[in-house]
Write a protein that binds this DNA or RNA. Sequence first.
DNA 1: TGATCCCGCCAACGT
DNA 2: ACGTTGGCGGGATCA
Length: 850
Amino acid sequence: RSILKTPLKQAATSQSVLTEIQPDQPLTTPPKPKDPLPAEPWTPTSNLKMLISAASPEIRSREQRRELSHNTSEVLQAKHCLQEHLLGDEYEKSQPSRKEKSLGLLCHKFLARYPDYPSTAENNYICLDEVAEELNVERRRIYDVVNVLESLHMVSRLAKNRYAWHGRHHLFKTLEALKKAGEKNKYTQQIQLIKKREYEHEFDLNSERNEEMARCFGSNKHSEISFVELPGMEFRAASVNSRKDKSLRVMSQKFVMLFLVSTPQIVSLEVAAKILIGEEQLEDLDKSKFKTKIRRLYDIANVLSSLELIKKVHVTEERGRKPAFKWTGPEVLPNIQDTKLEATCTTCPPPSSESTPSKEQCSKNLFPSRGKNFTRHPSLIKLVKTIENDRRKVQSAPTSPVKISGGIDQNLSAFPSKMAQGPAIAKYQLAGQSKKEMKMQLSGSALECNVSLPEAVPKVEPPLSAAPSQLPALPQPLGVCPPCHSAVSPVILPHPPAGVPYAIYLHPSPAHTVTTYSPSFMLQPLPCANVTGIQSMNSKVLNKIPTEEGDNQMAPDDPSKSLTADEKPPIKSETSSQRCLKRSQALQDNNLIKRCRSDEESLDTALTFFPSGYLIPLTQYTHGNEAAFPNKEKAGICSLQHPSYSPPIAGVIPVTASELKAVNIPTFHLTPLNIMLSPTSVAAAPVLSNPCLSSSSTRAAQKPSSSVLNFTLQHVGLIPAGVQVSANPFLQHMPLSSQPEHGNCSSENMNVQEEKVRKYAFANNILQKPKPRIHAGFFSFPLNDNVFLSSLQPSVPKEPQEPQTVTENFFRTPGGPNTVSSLSATSDGTDRTSPGTLYIPQRKLEVSED
DNA sequence: TGATCCCGCCAACGT
DNA sequence: ACGTTGGCGGGATCA
């Protein structure tokens, strides 16, 4: 058996395969430099896959062989001709292009040989020799592929030369495990550190972060991960495989972990490489080592890309384009929530059998597309228009789907996940359509309230140095962090006017929400200016905020500036609280909507205003009071419920992101406030609206009597409108019923209004089912679409224009699941869950796809 | 150019 | 010893 590969054969094979599968693919053309090879020759990958899969393995290989031999002889002759008549270089050119030999392609071919979900009955053994031969590649290359697949437990080694194919059966579980491992390994923090370091380096800021770095990474050394295995999936041939596994396998897993733990699920090669190296040798980050790492990462990335787990993108920042990859695989939620969610979702099969798409599938079923094509067009104006249209639709025909461009998706969404391959094709096709629009700007991760990093608020410095974690076992990203990401940190504020205390539920950042620190994503407390602006929500504020936003956006260009902002002392809590109150008052007599509408500029605001939380009156709904809260802002949803209380619905004050920015930090200093968690406290219905579109809401606000209900309902209706979602659909996990006190809220406890809201919501697919539980958790929204773009990535089989309801969005915010769980307001006001940290995007991060 | 990453040498390992 | 694995990095290609 020889590995000797005849270039000839290779050419024949790759071409025959391509020809056979994709007759119209340019790939079949001889590799001439001029030939316009499609940027993504494998875009129709799924096509290939499906077609190949359609045939049984036997037929497949038979045909392959036939093709092979057939073409071989043909090409053989051609080769001779070429050799004899062409000049050396000309002959060279006739050779298969590099692309045709790429690892990615190889991987595709490899994957095409086996079903995603093989039945146990099938013969799923893989003989490397055979594969290598059939695919006409040297064995060495097969190893590259197999190693990565192995890291995902898609294959497992049985013995020498022999592997077992598992397909994606274990994929999801593996990812969960990896995520856990990644959190344990504090990758989130490492990423932040690295980015931060970069940043400081870049601007020559004294960077004696080394110690910090060392500590961070150092603490890992002990808990260093080798290879993450799944129970029952251990290396059977472990003994055979004892080679130091710092290998591709492990590297691959770590790479994946990085995606799973970082909030914008985008990881640049550079960072990844540094982290992977860092773990081994902190210091000598010599160039060559780095390069090598990068090379390996490319190898891995190619395979992962073939698996459609990641996708290549480019992150553009000041320093230029950096290659990076974006996670496009299934969203992996923290286990607890996950489990609960699954338990709740009866319409979907457990992920174990449907690993990849199950959740997405689930959400699709639960939330039939409404036909809204969420674009992420850069034009804000367009955006708003879209939103308005959407809203109209929703209001007029809440349940009737209006297909704009997602027809295929809709159909597909009804397909069982088994059909994943089918949709995949559509996905690609549609993806192509919207490709141009895929250019997105990530102006940071928007507002993120990281409850787990309180110390980080005032200082740019991550808390890492302050408290090197000794708790490797903690699932939390930071050992330092209190296990608070699972709880919302309510802050209750007295509401002077009505004498009603309000709780501000901020969106705590779960493990994976930790913002990556970097020049792109600056961790920084809100500038005072924001707070000021908030103190009165009037037109002035509106006008001002955009400006501030602008400032923030400028920050990227001016590091020193952002730093300065960082240095700004936190606002006095007292002041802020007061302002909060004022604000709520101000809301009463404001009709910002008009301004919003009339003011083109406010469009910007629209985006940045995405709510992150609500001010929730803690008392029962009171007439006249709630009315005061015009919903001119799009609010984030905040359903809140104390475990032991049955919360009737209450008024909700939408808090815009920008407001939160201002309020947030100070809020956490409001410890002196009285916490009055009334048993009847709160239940906020999901609300999300676009300030510019809430005209009707405004009207409602004018009618005190029905204010709350109207407010809620309207916001509910608005939700879809207010959400700017990337063209990519994403997973919509519904942490809704993750509450332990699940049953606490008996329908009897629901007052009429809530019931109404619930029904309405349900009618709009906002609720999973008529379950009396809209208050089961807290949901917040990212500030703008960027967040969605960056962190709410589609799960594997992603349909480009997948319509989605807003519900899906807020059920799946970055903070999502974690946020919902154990929502327990501490009774003493000094929430243990700790204050939140705002991660405010400081720089523009542009992610473009190729 | 810089980004990608193919290719295959050769050492560690297993049998 | 010999075959299997797979780390590694030179240098070719691509964009």
